[in-house]
Design a protein around this nucleic acid. Structure first.
Length: 498
RNA sequence: GGCGCCGUUGCCAAGUGGUAAGGCAGAGGUUUGCAAAACCUCCAUUCAUCGGUUCGAAUCCGAUCGGCGCCUCCA
């Protein structure tokens, strides 16, 4: 079944068809590198990561471009504050950005263009717009003349009239004076003496905010490409302006599909840097695994708001994120299920048995079907859960259920885990390593060392051997008081902290 | 003010014309020395409210109430 995606431009779900059969070009607006990635960026990146993974799993050859904006007023401001060079600030946060993406198991983009390396493309695009009469110089600035582009407003579905009323009164007089129309936007901003700048045909300055995405996307994906993505807050003005610039220059449609993800919300409000209500991803990892954040990002539809909650202690310090911790328990379930499958006794596996539970056999196609439906992430998790449940059913330790299971079923389950890791990017780590990392972090948070727990377990094992269950239970309840749960299995006793 | 989105069980969350997925919490059971984990069963005649269209609506239309987003830097 074909992929459908909600397209902001046409304001409806459309069947996705690539411009070039078998190939997909996708451009996602990345970040401006003046600070660390926050939970909202992580969500956005995860959504598009799953989109790319799903497209690849569906057989498309995908060119995934995610830009880095490394020339921007905020970076300049930041550099001024820290006394660094602008490029240093950018470099520092680019490195941090890449690391943050990596720990979230986000596929690297095929091309990660930086503005600072594409000035030539930007000059050329601006020149073309000036030549065609869509842009004009005003002192050292160059502006795009919005009224010259008839389609302006088609992405954000608003009229020029309504925009004009909103724009006037918000701009400073100096800027307003240079603009022929308040809604016009800068393609090139002239640098004041001493300000950071690059020499251009219009003098020293720096590119306006939107032009880089037009220049770089066209450079790598062509004048018209398949999918352009980003956060909902980029619809206007960023993407609206990109369309205007690009289509004015080429006379061709810019992107075929516009896909926008919803926000992470904090107390029902959008998480954003300007509101200051954000948590950076990296500062939260002492409370949960990055993979938990990834799972959390998949629990709601990509266009819907994702509500973040947290708890604080009396001093007002953050002590946890309940929803993400719940997501982490779900990730633990994935890994525990993997371990149970591995622990199935070979004696139970029969070559001649043929029965494969359909939740296992059909998991890959059900997952694909969920994602084909406008990337329905919660349904993808639901079918994943049904798959995992059935794998657990299959893996019930021998001794409890001595029923033979088909080798084909085991293989289908193993394949299911590969698909899960490949498409949703979940359960890709070494199960034991992941699980012990989680429980050791939780033990540490409770001020207990794994050694102390192991020691208590050894004592309990000795008591159990003597069938001294009173003593054994006493040890167990003492641990339970500290939140530690023991599991007695055929392989011995393990512990975990829920 | 303009444009747009949302309101589903105790909580989270799918479903967008054919009679309510999934998770958490809760209840019962299988298993266990007892537990935990795992699995099984149960858990919304009802989808903010009120009207309308339809054989049929959570899903379409209108009104009302409530929440949010964009219109300015923002994933």
């Amino acid at each position: 079944m074909p992929l459908t995606l909600y397209d902001t431009l046409s304001a409806r779900k459309r069947t996705f068809e690539p411009l070039k059969p078998g190939h997909v070009g996708i451009y996602v607006c990345g970040v401006t590198v003046y600070d660390y990635v926050h939970i909202g960026h992580a969500r956005s990146a995860t959504v598009f990561d799953v989109m790319v993974r799903h497209l690849r799993e569906s057989g498309f050859i995908v060119t995934y471009v995610r830009n880095i904006t490394d020339i921007d007023d905020k970076i300049i401001k930041r550099a001024l504050e820290s006394g660094e060079e602008t490029a240093q600030v950018a470099e520092r946060f680019i490195e941090a950005f890449r690391q943050d993406m990596r720990v979230l198991n986000l596929l690297p983009a095929d091309i990660e263009p930086k503005v600072s390396e594409h000035l030539q493309e930007i000059y050329q695009l601006i020149s073309e717009l000036i030549e065609k009469g869509y842009a004009y110089q005003a002192e050292g600035d160059v502006y795009f003349s919005v009224s010259r582009f008839p389609g302006y407003g088609k992405l954000s579905h608003r009229s020029l009239v309504s925009l004009a009323t909103g724009a006037s009164g918000r701009l400073n007089d100096a800027e307003l004076e240079r603009k022929r129309d308040p809604v016009d936007f800068a393609l090139w901003k002239g640098a004041k003496p001493g300000e950071l700048g690059w020499d251009s045909p219009w003098g020293r300055g720096r590119p306006g905010w939107h032009i880089e995405c037009s220049a770089m996307s066209m450079r790598y994906l062509g004048e018209t490409f398949d999918i352009h993505g980003g956060g909902l807050d980029l619809v206007f003005p960023h993407h609206e302006n990109e369309i205007a610039q690009s289509e004015a220059a080429t006379g061709k449609p810019f992107a075929n599909f516009w896909v926008h993800n919803g926000f992470v919300e904090v107390a029902k409000q959008k998480m954003s840097k300007s509101l200051g209500n954000f948590f950076t991803a990296r500062e939260c990892y002492r409370f949960f695994e990055p993979e938990a954040l990834r799972y959390f990002a998949l629990t709601v539809h990509y266009r819907a708001p994702l509500n973040l909650d947290w708890v604080v202690d009396e001093a007002g310090r953050v002590t946890g994120f309940p929803s993400i911790e719940e997501a982490e328990r779900r990730v633990e379930y994935i890994y525990n299920t993997q371990l149970r499958l591995k622990a199935v006794s070979p004696k139970r596996i029969r070559e001649d048995a043929v029965e494969i539970p359909e939740e296992i056999a059909l998991f890959p196609e059900r997952l694909a079907a969920a994602l084909d439906d406008d990337l329905n992430l919660p349904v993808a998790l639901a079918v994943t859960h049904e798959f995992l449940k059935q794998v657990n059913e299959l893996s019930e330790p021998a001794g409890k259920r001595k029923i033979a299971i088909a080798r084909k079923a085991v293989e289908a389950a193993e394949n299911g885990f590969l698909v899960l890791g490949r498409v949703l990017g979940l359960g890709y780590d070494d199960p034991s390593r992941f699980l012990s990392r989680v429980r050791e972090r939780r033990a540490k948070a409770r001020g207990i060392t794994p050694e102390q727990i192991e020691k208590a377990i050894d004592e309990r094992i000795a008591a159990r051997k003597k069938r001294d269950f009173i003593q054994a239970d006493a040890i167990r309840s003492r641990l339970a008081e500290n939140g530690i749960e023991l599991m007695d299995g055929p392989e011995g006793t393990t512990w975990h902290i829920p």
